[in-house]
């Protein structure tokens, strides 16, 4: 497998911009030749020892990579798909040794659990859900929420997993009668779940009872809002949103992320902060990921930009590498690394500091 991984450049690849820097620590090369779609890092347990593993997804192949030393990763397992292509990996926190993937063409048609056993006789993948799936998110406490169906027969379902990947419990949430675009957990509140809808509402559910607690109308100026992070403080709900359809304005430049505060009791809400590109940078939000108080986005220009949400400004810009645009970016859930992917399957791992 060593030929699948190129040498490591031990040098900063990007000059510090307003206090942040990225250092390339490792590179994974995809030999399959098919289009790369996603990457994720998860914990894996073997003989009582937990270590991070990287999952890479191409259109028809999902691969599991094991760390051989701090900078070298070796591919140890692959799952192949023949009919429906992979759309995304669905990370589920608190779950070890199980990979969840969403498959489909433009929309999700299936969610599958991928298992890795040494015994080839065992089934290596299980169909978890199929149908017209609009949104999916892995939640803490070994849960996964998904919405499916049309507005007339919409289902919002939470599945809790057993250790073997089987379904331990199922719970249905009250549907909002609007197409759900994304879900988000409320940090520190295990029973609260948020959704964003095509009608520009933020919905709040009680995960324990299934109640739809509130629909909160947010600013109409942005469509197709994605919720990346939410937390509750002093009775108010703060949400970090991105706006793939946001247009550049003269006053604030190009907004990529936005922090909104809402009062769940009154549904009144307002913008707190717009996270825009530095002057002279063009591009809209294409894809992104938020972890703690850092937000990373791939822009339509092919550049990756990172914001410190507390400082309020962009800290690093990572232009396309080897004349190839970036196509996705993820924070590692296990450390302060950034995983940046290109369509041809190359995954670059950077240390962010």
């Amino acid at each position: 497998h060593s030929t699948e991984q190129t040498e490591i450049a031990d040098r900063p690849v990007c000059d510090s911009l307003n206090s942040g820097s990225l250092q390339l620590v490792s590179k994974l090369k995809n030999p399959s030749g098919s289009c790369s779609v996603d990457v994720s890092v998860m914990w894996w347990e073997e003989a009582g020892f937990k270590e991070p593993r990287i999952i890479t997804a191409c259109e028809y192949v999902v691969s599991l990579w094991k760390p051989m030393d701090p900078c070298q990763w070796e591919k140890i397992h692959t799952w192949h798909f023949t009919e429906v292509p992979v759309l995304q990996i669905v990370p589920v926190p608190d779950v070890c040794n199980l990979v969840f993937v969403a498959l489909g063409n433009l929309e999700i048609r299936e969610i599958r659990t991928l298992l890795c056993s040494s015994d080839d006789k065992n089934e290596k993948q299980k169909l978890l859900k199929s149908g017209n799936i609009k949104a999916v998110l892995g939640l803490t406490e070994r849960r996964l929420v998904s919405s499916s169906g049309t507005l007339c027969d919409q289902q919002v379902e939470v599945v809790t997993f057993a250790d073997d990947g089987g379904t331990k419990e199922k719970q249905f949430l009250m549907p909002p009668k609007e197409t759900i675009l994304t879900f988000a957990e409320v940090q520190g509140m295990q029973e609260a779940l948020l959704g964003t809808t095509a009608m520009n509402n933020v919905t709040i559910w009680n995960l324990k009872t299934g109640q739809l607690l509130k629909k909160i109308r947010i600013d109409d100026s942005y469509q197709a809002t994605v919720c990346h992070k939410a937390y509750s403080e002093m009775g108010l709900l703060f949400v970090v949103l991105s706006h793939p359809c946001a247009k550049e304005t003269e006053s604030s430049g190009s907004p990529v992320f936005q922090l909104i505060v809402m009062n769940p009791k009154t549904t009144l809400n307002m913008g707190v902060m717009l996270y825009c590109l530095p002057p002279g940078q063009a591009g809209r939000f294409l894809e992104g990921d938020v972890k703690d108080h850092f937000a990373a986005a791939v822009l339509t220009s092919g550049t990756i930009a990172i914001w410190d949400l507390l400082l309020g400004h962009c800290t690093v810009l990572l232009p396309p590498s080897s004349a190839q645009s970036w196509s996705f970016v993820k924070w590692s859930g296990t450390d302060s690394h950034v995983l940046a992917g290109q369509k041809d399957g190359n995954i670059f791992i950077y240390r962010y500091s």
């Binding site: 109640q211 009775g235 009062n263 769940p264 009791k265 009144l268 307002m270």
Partner: peptide, 23 residues
């Protein structure tokens, strides 16, 4: 804009909304 524009705030909003919302 200020915090006052958001109306009366409750620290227990989640519990209160859960008790008010239909089951």
């Amino acid at each position: 804009c200020s915090k006052a524009d958001l109306g009366p705030i409750s620290l227990n909003w989640f519990e209160e909304l859960s008790s008010e919302a239909p089951p």
